[in-house]
Design a protein around this nucleic acid. Structure first.
Lengths: 117, 117
DNA sequence: TATATACATGCCCATATGGGAATATGTCAA
DNA sequence: TTGACATATTCCCATATGGGCATGTATATA
C-alpha cells in the first residue's frame, strides 16, 4: 500500500488551489469551459480534468448548450466540508476551550490518562 | 512541473482521512502520541508524520510533559477552511440560486457571454 | 551511567495525480 | 459531407507523499 486510497471526495477535490479558483468562478452563474480557460489562464485539458473531478464529487453541474457545455458550481456539494469544519467552531474561543479542558480533566481524573503536572 | 507545488496548507492537511480523525480525536483535550496510536490504531511513525503536517499548518499545538508530548487541536486553524466554505452558503438554496441566475442573465445580456437558449 | 519509554526522522517503495502534448469525440455551419 | 469550434480523453512524465521498517533523539528511572 501507499498513499491512502484516493477516496476522491469533497475534501480532496477542494485541496487543489486551481479547483478552488474554478469553484469560485463558477459560483452562481453558468459558464462554458472556454471562459474558465481564458479567465483563469489554465490550459483547456487541465480545466476539463479539474471539472471532471469536481463533477464526480458533486461540486459542479453541467448542461449542454449547443457546442458548449455550461458548468456551474453546486454549492450544496460544499455542505459536508462546511459542516465538518463547523465542528471546530465552538472551540475557537480560547476561553471556552479552557473551560472545557478543566471540566474534562476533572471528569477524567480516574482514567488511564496521562495526568498533567 | 507536476502535481501542483504541495502548498502544504490547511486544505491539503485536511484532505487526509487519517488526519481528520486525529483532529477530531485531539479536539478539546491534550493527548500524548501514544493515545492516538492506540485509539485510532495507526502506527506510531505514521502518527508522528501526520502530527508534523498538522503542526506545520497550525492545526495542532504541542507541549512537552516529561517524556510525553501532549498534542491538542488548534481549532482556530480551521477558520480559513470554514470561512471559505461559507462563501457557498448563500447558494445552498435552489430558490436563491435561480433568482440570482436570472438577475445576472439580465444584467449580462450585452456581454460576450454565451447566451442561453 | 545504563536502560526503558516516548516520540521523531530517514529511507525506500508504491501509487496517485497535475500538467503538457497529441488525439478523440461531439456539435454546428456551410 | 466537410470543416471549424468546443470539450474530453489518452499517454507520458515528474513529483509528492503515505506507509513500513529501522534508527535516531530526548527524557525519566533504576
Amino acid at each position: 500500500m501507499a498513499r491512502a486510497a484516493t477516496t476522491s471526495d469533497v475534501f480532496n477535490a477542494v485541496a487543489e488551489p486551481r479547483r478552488r479558483e474554478i469553484l469560485i468562478f463558477l459560483l452562481g452563474r453558468e459558464r462554458p469551459v472556454t471562459d474558465v480557460v481564458e479567465q483563469l489562464r489554465i490550459e483547456q485539458p487541465a480545466v476539463s480534468k479539474h471539472l471532471r473531478v469536481l463533477r464526480d464529487v458533486g461540486l459542479v453541474r453541467v448542461r449542454r448548450n449547443g457546442r458548449h457545455k455550461l458548468y456551474q458550481t453546486r454549492a450544496e456539494g460544499m455542505k459536508p466540508l462546511h459542516e465538518w469544519s463547523a465542528i471546530f467552531e465552538r472551540y475557537w474561543s480560547h476561553q471556552l476551550m479552557r473551560v472545557k479542558e478543566r471540566a474534562e480533566n476533572m471528569a477524567g481524573a480516574g482514567e488511564k490518562e496521562t495526568a498533567k503536572p
